[in-house]
Simulated scan of single mutants.
Amino acid sequence: MNAHRHLNAPTDGYVFVVTYGRSGSTLTQSLLNAIPGYVIRGENGNLTQFLGRAIDIVANDDMYRWRREDLPKPREERRPYLRPILGKPFDPWAGAERVDPDAFALGLMDLFVKQVLRPPKHCRVSGFKEIRFHEDPAFFAKHMDILRTLFPKSRILFQRRNLDDVARSGWWRQQPRDMVLGQLGQADKMFAAYAQAHPSSCRMIDYEGLISGLDYIRTMYQFLDEPLDEAAVQSVLAHSLKH
């Protein structure tokens, strides 16, 4: 995937909040939206994972990749399987060699921005929060790579919360406690590992820190290189804590 070919974007890029349910991420969404020019949307059913899987197939599936690689080669240097069929209408994967994976990836995510995120004219930072990233651990790192590569100036906030509190909250309390703690504990480890590997664009945040007040929230704003409006933040906290 060519990191230098980007989709259209607001001037200051994107912020994604990566978390799980009942982590307090709606508070984070509200705190981000209190920054002038930020338009951070809510959940979207993990659409970027489905789009990301399509992008990954076109880029890396052998049936696409082999054909792209062999198309410019002389016939005698192609894979034996492809010599008699590449470029022919009777190839079972006819046309796959002509698919540009970078253009395909950019087209899908550009459509996502235009039709799902729909940033308004005043928006300078777009993005969303999602609670389903961890549900496919095998694809998690690749999904994050796709977001960081395709969305220019992207930052990722990985949000965690005390798991005992999460397990007692919402729908989680209807499920076996050990299963919840195991699943979300794995999520926290994935989040931390990815953030540690990409410190310039990723940061771990804690719900407990956010509700502790301005000092902690200021560190999140500093990571995003944004000033903190104390009155705006206090208004968000007052509303959220009451809710």
Rank of each mutant, 00 (worst) to 15 (best):
A105R: 03
L71H: 08
T48R: 02
E69Y: 14
D165G: 07
R168G: 13
D12Q: 12
Q175V: 09
I131S: 09
I35M: 10
S169D: 05
K142W: 11
R168L: 13
R98M: 15
V166M: 06
V180Y: 14
R79V: 04
R83P: 14
D12E: 13
R124N: 06
D206K: 09
L147K: 11
I35F: 06
K114L: 10
P137F: 09
V18G: 04
S25D: 03
D61F: 03
V125F: 05
Y221N: 06
Y207S: 01
T28I: 04
A9E: 01
S126Y: 09
C123T: 13
L111C: 13
P74T: 00
A96H: 15
P199H: 10
P89V: 00
S212N: 11
K129I: 07
P199K: 10
F158I: 05
L241I: 14
D145P: 13
M220K: 00
F128T: 08
C202W: 03
S201G: 13
R78Q: 12
E135M: 12
D188L: 06
R218S: 11
D56F: 13
K153A: 12
K121V: 14
E97R: 04
F133N: 06
V166G: 05
L210S: 08
D12F: 06
D178F: 08
L51T: 02
F50V: 11
D61H: 07
Q159D: 03
Y38I: 01
Q115E: 15
F223R: 03
L47Y: 12
H243D: 15
G42V: 09
F50W: 11
F151L: 02
H198N: 13
P89E: 01
A195H: 02
A96F: 15
R5G: 05
E135W: 11
A9Q: 02
R79G: 04
A96T: 06
R83E: 15
A94E: 05
A34W: 02
P80W: 12
V166Y: 08
Y207L: 00
P10F: 03
N44M: 07
A195V: 04
G213N: 05
T26P: 06
L82S: 04
F139A: 10
A96P: 00
N44Y: 15
D188S: 12
I55A: 14
A3W: 13
L181G: 10
I85K: 07
D70R: 04
